[in-house]
């Protein structure tokens, strides 16, 4: 016993110390088993993906001078022709620059109204050489309010992208000249687009 105690380096009996050591080892193993994460298992993860492309519409319009006099503004939203002492005729188109059909409209205004309206719309391009409308023409009616004559023309149906409203303005010597102003195009209402 004395020899065993000496060999073990302690005063406790060897069998008891061995049992404690074994117990401690077992406890450590149990704790480790409980605390350690489960072995990482491979994940089998089949995945399927599909994609659909989308684009947003763009809306816009603007004047393009076709022939004759007058000036289109830098933003293409205005056109003016004539002045106090000068008369002129201009052919200008309002172009639908949208990516979708849209209803276009423009307002004609002038400082005073003498005789009939100076602005008319043709269903097809005007013939500047003769001033004739090969299709059907519509005179843009003006109303005098507070000394300013104005009237608005709206296309009866949406105009296709790139489509045009053909306007002819023939003005005599008018104070302030004649001004055309383009309004924002109006597209269709929101709707279902499941079919693209």
């Amino acid at each position: 016993m004395g020899r065993l105690s000496c060999d073990c380096g302690g005063g406790s009996p060897a069998p008891s110390r061995a049992r404690r050591r074994a117990g401690a080892t077992l406890a450590a193993l149990l704790v480790g088993a409980l605390a350690a994460p489960a072995p990482a298992a491979a994940h089998w993860q089949p995945t399927a993906t599909v994609t659909a492309p989308l684009t947003a519409a763009s809306l816009g319009d603007g004047f393009v001078l076709v022939s004759g006099g007058g000036t289109v503004s830098a933003d293409r939203l205005g056109y003016s022709i004539g002045g106090p002492l000068t008369g002129a005729t201009g052919y200008v188109d309002l172009v639908n620059t949208s990516s979708v059909p849209a209803t276009l409209s423009l307002t004609v205004s002038m400082g005073t109204l003498v005789g009939v309206s100076p602005a008319a719309v043709c269903s097809v391009s005007w013939v500047p050489a003769t001033g004739a409308c090969p299709g059907s023409s519509t005179l843009i009616g003006l109303t005098l309010v507070l000394g300013v004559a104005s009237g608005t023309y709206t296309t009866p149906a949406p105009v296709a992208p790139g489509g045009r409203v053909h306007v002819k303005v023939a003005v005599g010597a008018v104070l302030g000249g004649v001004t055309l102003t383009a309004h924002p195009p109006v597209a269709r209402p929101a709707g279902e687009r499941t079919r693209g």
Partner: peptide, 15 residues
């Protein structure tokens, strides 16, 4: 599903 939708306007929807 892959059919694209062009010219979406505000409020448009598709299934």
């Amino acid at each position: 599903f892959t059919t694209g939708v062009a010219d979406l306007l505000p409020g448009d929807w598709f299934d």
